[in-house]
Design a protein around this nucleic acid. Sequence first.
DNA 1: GTGAAAGCGCTAACAG
DNA 2: CTGTTAGCGCTTTCAC
Lengths: 333, 333
Amino acid sequence: MTRRRITIKDVSALAGVSVSTVSRVLNASGPISEETRKVVMQAASDLKYQPNPLARGLVKNQLGGVGVLIPWLGGPYFCSFLEGVQDVVRDTPFRMVISSEQAVKEKEAEALAYLLENDADGVIYYGDSLRPEDIAEINPLGKPVVLLGQPVTDSYPCVAIDDEVGAFLATRYLIDNGHRQIAHLTGDAQQHVTASRLSGYRRALDQAGIPFDPHLIVHADYSEQGGYRGLQHLLGRAVDFTALFCGNDQMAIGAYQALREFNKQIPEDVSVVGFDNISFAQYMHPPLTTVQVPIRSMGRVAAQILIGNIEGQEVFPAPLEAELIIRRSVLRR
Amino acid sequence: MTRRRITIKDVSALAGVSVSTVSRVLNASGPISEETRKVVMQAASDLKYQPNPLARGLVKNQLGGVGVLIPWLGGPYFCSFLEGVQDVVRDTPFRMVISSEQAVKEKEAEALAYLLENDADGVIYYGDSLRPEDIAEINPLGKPVVLLGQPVTDSYPCVAIDDEVGAFLATRYLIDNGHRQIAHLTGDAQQHVTASRLSGYRRALDQAGIPFDPHLIVHADYSEQGGYRGLQHLLGRAVDFTALFCGNDQMAIGAYQALREFNKQIPEDVSVVGFDNISFAQYMHPPLTTVQVPIRSMGRVAAQILIGNIEGQEVFPAPLEAELIIRRSVLRR
DNA sequence: GTGAAAGCGCTAACAG
DNA sequence: CTGTTAGCGCTTTCAC
């Protein structure tokens, strides 16, 4: 049963009007008598007519996609972000088109160019390999772009929580619980998120009069594996610490593993705080105290802003807050 | 800088040939002298020409998307599946268009219809709310469909591992380790995957001469939360068991939590085996012994088959195997 | 081997 | 208010 697709012509024929009339009623453009409107609507629904998005896009000069460029498709954090994007895209005529390139700058540039060229009327970019200048170059048509994961700029709308404050909260909580030797397991030093969270950590230390000790900092790569290796490294160094602040939950997962292998009890020997509050965090043993990032909401907001921009409106994001979720991975000393 | 997009006309003008000639060289359709071929290629690359996919799709009657309908976008399992799909879609002119509707039949029907109507030239459907008959009805144009998560049929190509065998392997491993009271925490009884895994569990029991005890079966919903609740339930019943076979790893995560709350040591009091081998499994405490499902490969294979079908070829899937990954959640008695 | 022209399905002037 | 017409950018006959 390879029946031909119903076109606007079929509708116009059945309704006994011209195609432009059909177009007008379907798009509510131009004046239409109530009479013909009804006839056309009837015909359209009788035939189950669905406009061909290609033809429509061709004349309207719209590709119809909301591009999403993220570093990784797998992994709990970015998946939740996508869920948020989809929450809003679902209710629009746009489709979500995803691309992920492991945060490799050249590949991301290519992917972004491809999206803008072939699929999307605007792009949500979560990453910081490509800076606004790079993006401008890739985006000659000046399509809307929304940024996440990099410093807020004027060039493009950005959605972000305050990582510095989140990290400050986490670290201060550890300090308030009597810890003074607090290690920080973090990601690639080049990344903006790394810098922000590190500076929140330092501010909390400063404020409590605790000197900053560079030996307590380990850089890894924000993965479980990275956290595991990073912590092994730290435990190998001859530095004492009673608490560990992890740059994200995935690294905390790896850290737990390394800690266990070194026979360190959590939280008796080492207290741990994470960042993100991925869903696994509450099922860790012990359940992980962490900073909640409203990642799904961030996806929603990003999509709202982008689609608004595509449609020529200015959209102002609702403010998003990071919040400390207290569970059982921190011990008062 | 809102420059106009480069069109085939621009190329033809620069190359000094007609648009049809340009089209011919770019698509390698029809005969072309080596001479003009070079000129056109040069012009195209000078202008960085990219054909408008909408115009091309309109004439070729192709939407350009590979639709993917999955139950959940979040969650480790389906995200890995998407990664596999993207692995192959990336190298084709298709784009990946995702939809997820929490496995609700009516919503999935709507989403599938929408995909087929607006976005996709074929769909990968992971779920079993919609059966082949339902799909046929939704798919009047007879576009290619690839199925996962339901019984293999002739109607559409299916990619699946043998769940029955996987469950058999898991259960037999428990039996080989001296367990005879083996509980099974599983999902919705309606789902095909539930039935297959249950029957593998039963076959292993039968083969070892262990009577099947329905009190040892708990149905939940394949989520961490579900596993947690399900196991609480089971622990509340007055049945003894020394081992637990979980229908998936996410439920095993919840089960660990419930077990701990009831002060049951894993594996000393209760041995646990999962299914899927999601990335967290190895970081659980103790690391979870589980059946590995090559989910990313399944995504790749599904995409290959679908795209092959869209392009009119028949593609035969490489066989995929489930394999038991032994870690530390099972104790020999 | 190449160009002219038709047409994919739709929207948007432009007449009437 | 409605119909006619001209494209959107591309591929594909059909001539030459």
